[in-house]
Simulated scan of single mutants.
Amino acid sequence: MAEQTAPPVIRDPGTPAKPDAAVVRDALGVGVAVGLSGFAFGVTSAGAGLGLLQTCVLSLLVFTGASQFALVGALAAGGNPFTAAAGAFFLGTRNAFYGLRLSQLLALPKAVRPFAAHWVIDETTAVALAQPSRRAARVGFTVTGLTLYVLWNVTTLLGALGAEALGDTAAWGLDAAGPAVFLALLAPMLKTATERATAGIAVLLGLGLLPVLPAGVPVLAAALAAPAVLWFRGRRASAAPGGAERTDRAAEAGPETKEDSR
Rank of each mutant, 00 (worst) to 15 (best):
E123Y: 04
G92V: 09
A84W: 04
A85N: 13
T83R: 06
I121S: 02
K110E: 14
A88T: 03
G73L: 05
R113L: 08
L106P: 04
F69C: 01
G73D: 04
P109W: 11
R94S: 02
N95S: 07
G78W: 04
G99T: 14
G99K: 10
F115C: 11
A107W: 09
A116I: 11
S103V: 05
L108H: 11
W119I: 02
L71N: 00
P81N: 01
L75I: 03
F90S: 08
L106Q: 01
L100T: 12
R94V: 05
L105E: 10
L100G: 15
S103I: 08
R101E: 15
R113T: 12
D122F: 06
N80H: 14
L71W: 01
T93Q: 06
G92H: 06
A86I: 03
I121C: 04
D122E: 07
F97N: 05
N80M: 09
S67N: 03
V112G: 00
A84Y: 05
A117M: 13
I121H: 03
S67D: 05
H118A: 06
R113E: 13
L91S: 00
P109F: 12
F69G: 02
G78R: 03
T93R: 03
L100P: 15
A116C: 11
P114H: 13
A84D: 01
A74K: 05
T124N: 06
F82D: 13
G99E: 07
L106G: 04
F115D: 11
A86C: 11
A85I: 11
A88F: 01
T93N: 09
V120H: 05
Q104S: 12
G79D: 00
L102R: 08
A76F: 03
F115T: 12
